[in-house]
């Protein structure tokens, strides 16, 4: 696992992962102990996701999109190893995932930067943790390389509270990439950003991905984001017991430019199909929520 480090910027496509999600379900057990029964507060089991089967080929960018509460983040957490499937298994390059590990870089929605570390220190922490035997000079080189990659050279000595949301997430992306993972997992990375910053960072992700074609899984709410970045879009049904409704192929050539996408006839078809699916699922979710509160 801690093999020699291959610099991914100068040697792209060196590592890539094939991920196989096999029949994965996640059931959160309800309250049903004797104490709960006597207190009349039992609750049924909650099935977040059910029977998810998905093959993700090396070097593909896959987006998962679905109505809110459909278990997208649950699935990503299981892939990251932070949570465990109730049934089924996830296999990365032939080996089942049993826990978190640096072969998967994670970009968190809330950035999750250590506030007591500077930008450079946050990235160094990751590199040093994953490659403890690496010479210090090389660690520093990698840190600088990734700070440059996300365009934060002038902010490397700043602490997170001095950065804007967009800058924070760039640090998050640099930190995830700097450990040279086999795949990148992103959980609504731009969800907390304003629309303009979000668009800008999406373009940045597209640019960075052209340089480093990792296997990527992106959880998103945004149809445009999915269409701009993905090779494949996985649409999920509403929860509970969310399933995969459909997997769409996004055939646009790369590198992609946001303003050119709508020249492709498929763009409108894909967008219409996604909007149809998501608005239908969201309407049912909202209606059931209204019923539950009434």
């Amino acid at each position: 696992m801690r093999s020699s480090y291959i610099n991914p910027v100068s040697a792209p496509m060196e590592t890539a992962a094939h991920l196989s999600i096999q029949n994965v379900s996640k059931i959160y057990p309800g309250r049903r102990s004797l104490l709960d029964k006597t207190l009349r507060r039992t609750s049924p089991d909650f099935t977040a996701i059910a029977d998810i089967d998905l093959e993700i080929e090396p070097n593909t960018f896959v987006s998962i999109i679905g109505p809110s509460g459909c278990g997208k983040s649950t699935l990503l957490n299981i892939i990251a190893g932070l949570s465990y499937p109730t049934t089924g298994a996830i296999v990365l390059n032939g080996k089942p995932i049993t826990g978190p590990g640096p072969d998967r870089g994670v970009v968190f929605q809330n950035y999750a930067l250590m506030p007591w570390m500077t930008v450079a220190e946050n990235i160094r922490f990751a590199v040093e943790t994953v490659y403890p035997a690496m010479p210090l000079a090389q660690q520093k080189n990698i840190v600088h390389e990734y700070i440059n990659l996300v365009g934060l050279r002038r902010a490397e000595r700043k602490h997170p509270h001095e950065l804007s949301g967009g800058m924070k997430q760039r640090v998050g992306i640099a930190r995830a990439l700097a450990i040279n993972p086999q795949m990148l997992l992103m959980d609504e990375p731009f969800g907390a950003l304003d629309a303009l910053t979000r668009g800008f960072l999406q373009d940045e992700i597209e640019r960075i991905w052209e340089q480093e074609r990792k296997t990527v899984i992106l959880i998103t709410h945004s149809i445009e984001e999915a269409l701009l970045l993905s090779d494949k879009i996985v649409m999920m049904t509403r929860g509970p017991a969310a399933r995969i409704a459909q997997v769409l192929d996004v055939p646009f050539p790369r590198p992609r430019k946001r303003e050119q996408l709508d020249q492709y006839p498929e763009y409108h078809e894909l967008k219409a199909a996604m909007e149809h699916h998501l608005s239908f699922e969201t309407r049912v979710v909202e209606e059931s929520r209204i019923k539950a509160t009434a």
Binding site: G99, P100, P102, R104, F108, A112, T129
Partner: peptide
């Protein structure tokens, strides 16, 4: 401690001591 910091450490495979 904010669980997201701990999740970062976990995903990096940091040892307990670290």
């Amino acid at each position: 401690v904010d669980s997201s910091y701990l999740n970062v450490a976990k995903t990096l495979g940091a040892s307990r001591w670290r």
